[in-house]
């Protein structure tokens, strides 16, 4: 399934599953009990599980002291806070590059997107979640 041709939430989540399965050899696996399709089904179940569990947490979550401030901080400010952390950690160059990109990021409708702040919020949540890139010698 190509992401460019999908539009519904279910199709987009399916495309996200496909992305995460790239690089897995299914030729050898198909000889065993796990096929690509059955694994994709399991993956989609887990995706919906993660999505729904978050939904229910949101519904039961009361006003927790200390959490509301972070929740109400605009995502651009959260990125600036990450820049500050990078500077404190001695990564001045990365902090400046990040600040520069944040300045380049258009706000509101001029970005061509409706939810640019939501995307930025997602990136903040995923910050540092990937293994660090191998250093080149």
């Amino acid at each position: 399934m190509k992401a460019s041709s999908s539009s519904s939430i279910t199709e987009l989540l399916g495309a996200l599953c496909d992305c995460s399965l790239s690089g897995v050899s299914w030729k050898r696996r198909s000889l065993g009990t796990v096929s690509r399709e059955s694994f994709r089904r399991t993956l989609k179940k887990r995706v919906y599980g993660a999505l729904l569990s978050k939904l229910f947490q949101d519904g039961t979550k009361g006003p927790v002291p200390g959490q509301s401030a972070a929740a109400n901080t605009p995502p651009r400010n959260k990125v600036l806070m990450i820049c500050f952390d990078l500077r404190v950690a001695g990564c001045r160059e990365e902090a400046e590059r990040l600040e520069g990109q944040l300045e380049r990021l258009p706000e509101g409708t001029s970005s061509g997107l409706q939810e640019v702040d939501a995307v930025l919020e997602l990136l903040v949540h995923l910050a540092g979640s990937a293994p660090p890139a191998p250093s080149s010698f």
């Binding site: 939430i9 989540l13 996200l16 599953c17 995460s20 993956l43 887990r46 995706v47 599980g49 993660a50 999505l51 569990s53 978050k54 939904l55 949101d58 939501a118 995307v119 919020e121 997602l122 949540h125 995923l126 979640s129």
Partner: peptide, 14 residues
């Protein structure tokens, strides 16, 4: 889609 929920989905997929 809520970005926090989407980040949980991506982490689960990984």
């Amino acid at each position: 889609i809520n970005p926090e929920a989407l980040s949980a989905v991506i982490k689960e997929l990984r």
